[in-house]
């Protein structure tokens, strides 16, 4: 299987099929990221914008670097700009997928989502963003650092504080404290 970077190189050289493969790899992930804090139509709009920006910036991509943090930075910058334009801080809205099939599953997941939403909403924006990337999207600390323009150590400290605060909130939630 070709790596992301090989696919991007192929796309830069004009291989349209490589773009399809990249969309299949990153479209679902980006949509999940956006839906976590936005309504579905806004989330789709931002993912659309992310791929358009990826296309426009393709000649800026350095194929010796990783594609994922590069693309994620575009997505996160677009999301931040949208929140700035709307003059509101992002909410930790962990949405349940609208097409989940099982009714019982929906109820359970809604409850779980509400619990996570409450817990995440208690975190400062900087910590929440790091937790989102590290836990939800399974990005490594260096990748998160690259996206946020911070040092890896600073990201680790932020993640530690965030996880610690989340743990306290979730435990309190479970014990009803």
């Amino acid at each position: 299987m070709k790596s992301d970077e090989e696919l991007m190189q192929a796309y830069i050289e004009g291989d349209v099929a490589a773009f399809s493969e990249l969309f299949d790899r990153y479209g679902p992930m980006l949509l999940r990221i956006m839906r976590r804090q936005l309504r579905d139509d806004d989330a789709q709009e931002l993912v659309q914008q992310t791929f358009l920006q990826m296309h426009r910036a393709r000649n800026d991509f350095d194929t010796s670097r990783k594609l994922r943090p590069w693309l994620m930075t575009i997505a996160y910058n677009l999301k931040r700009e949208l929140f700035r334009r709307r003059g509101r801080k992002p909410e930790a809205a962990l949405e349940v997928e609208p097409e989940a099939e099982d009714r019982g599953d929906i109820v359970e997941r809604k409850s779980e989502a509400a619990r996570l939403r409450r817990a995440l909403a208690t975190l400062p924006e900087g910590q929440r963003e790091v937790i989102e990337m590290h836990w939800f999207e399974e990005l490594s600390f260096p990748e998160v650092a690259e996206i946020l323009g911070m040092t890896t150590s600073a990201v680790k400290v932020r993640a530690h504080r965030g996880y610690k605060a989340l743990r306290a909130t979730l435990e309190k939630d479970v014990t009803g404290g």
Binding site: P28, R32, W135, F136, E138, K164, L166, R167, L170
Partner: peptide, 18 residues
């Protein structure tokens, strides 16, 4: 400990509308 409380990462779920 925090990640255990959070449960499994949702990264594998495929969102609709793609």
């Amino acid at each position: 400990a925090a990640r255990e409380l959070l449960g499994g990462s949702p990264a594998a779920e495929l969102p609709p509308g793609l």
